[in-house]
């Protein structure tokens, strides 16, 4: 089963603050471990929502409304994700717990979501 490990954006990530060198190192070490265990499918970081675009359909059947970022509710935005292929939910959680605190400043948050099976 596939799990998506979403890293939530904090204020710092949204402001475009670069992660510390220690964190970048710890993150690449973590990705290496995932790869070596054969569970890593993909890992990407997203640019801050300042360069994001939203397309909404407030009226069914009508034209979409396009808004450009930044978006305000920064706590809930996604800053990056890692896609893994594991045998159980527990295994996914164990891997997520091994990820370094992705943000620091008390803002770090990872959300795990199972992918609908293909």
């Amino acid at each position: 089963m596939r799990y998506l490990l979403m890293v939530k954006a904090g204020k710092h990530a949204e402001a475009g603050v670069m992660p510390s060198r220690e964190l970048v190192d710890a993150m690449s070490e973590y990705n290496e471990r995932l790869a070596q265990a054969g569970v890593l499918l993909a890992a990407e970081g997203l640019q801050p929502s300042a360069s994001g675009i939203r397309i909404a359909y407030p009226m069914p059947g009508d034209h979409p409304v396009v808004t450009v970022g930044p978006f305000l509710e920064d706590k809930k935005l996604v800053a990056g994700y890692t896609l893994i292929d594991v045998g159980s939910e527990e295994e996914a959680v164990e891997w997520a717990l091994r990820m370094p605190d992705p943000s620091g400043y008390g803002e770090g948050e990872i959300e795990l979501r199972q992918l609908k099976s293909k």
Binding site: A37, G87, S88, E90, E91, V93, E94, W95, R98
Partner: peptide, 11 residues
């Protein structure tokens, strides 16, 4: 126990 199973699989 389920968590330990998962840890076992990883380690």
């Amino acid at each position: 126990h389920r968590t330990i199973d998962a840890i076992w699989r990883i380690e």
